[in-house]
Design a protein around this nucleic acid. Structure first.
Length: 210
DNA sequence: ACATTAAGTGATT
DNA sequence: AATCACTTAATGT
């Protein structure tokens, strides 16, 4: 079904043939509907999810259930968090949600150590994805610490436009607010301002970036 | 027609 | 920028 797509992703990651074979035989596929949770805090994972298609949203959740958006995972990217959990046997302190319909390839964690020794391409892949996640985290930290809400919102809208390739964003102000870790009222006000500046057009459940 | 959910707004901290 | 309280608008039943 998705095997060709998975194979092309693995080849693009420059993984050895032998490793690709092993990954295909030892893992299994998994589909998530948009909005479905993949992992929630406190659970210990047994597999590392590798995104074949779609987008995963990774968040941190505090005691009162407030969510802090960390970063997105898209095609060809792996979840660095579950890797670290595998190595250090920690429980997962974060949450992953399917942003769109998502297909995943679930790789058993107990094989990661073996593969890192056996395949240099895999070692590189793991380190690279760690690096990439780290960079993304730095970006979100930057924006939380140094950027005003209006800048963050504008950046969010432009990022969305870029990654979806469309200027329509099908989200409510409420959803955007939780992703940017603020309240709906603030988003509504800032969007209204952007509308007056003729940068966006507002509709119910929909925003168009101009 | 009524209920529910999304969005707009002034006032307060 | 956050919260409250309230209004208005869009949608579902």
């Amino acid at each position: 079904m998705n095997v060709e797509k998975l194979q092309s992703i693995l080849t693009h990651l420059n993984l050895e043939e032998g490793l690709i074979k092993e990954m295909l035989t030892t893992g299994h596929s998994r589909q998530l509907m948009a909005g479905a949770p993949l992992i929630s805090p406190g659970t210990t994972g047994s597999h590392m999810p590798l995104v074949i298609s779609g987008t995963l949203r990774i968040m941190r959740e505090d005691e009162e259930g407030k969510e802090l958006f960390l970063y997105y995972l898209e095609g060809g990217e792996a979840c660095a968090m579950s890797i670290s959990c595998c190595m250090s046997e920690h429980t997962l302190g974060f949450k992953a949600l399917a942003e769109t319909n998502v297909s995943l390839w679930m790789v058993p964690l107990n094989l990661l150590n073996e593969w890192m020794g056996k395949y240099s391409s895999f070692r590189k892949f793991i380190i690279d994805s760690y690096q990439a996640r780290f960079d993304e985290l730095m970006h979100t930290i930057d924006s939380i610490a140094f950027m005003n809400m209006d800048e963050r919102l504008l950046k969010y809208l432009l990022d969305k436009k870029q990654s979806s390739g469309s200027y329509v964003i099908d989200k409510t102000h409420e959803q955007i607010a939780t992703e940017l870790n603020t309240s709906r009222v603030v988003i509504s006000r800032l969007l209204k301002k952007l509308e007056r500046e003729e940068k966006v057009e507002l509709y119910r459940n929909r925003i168009e970036v101009l």
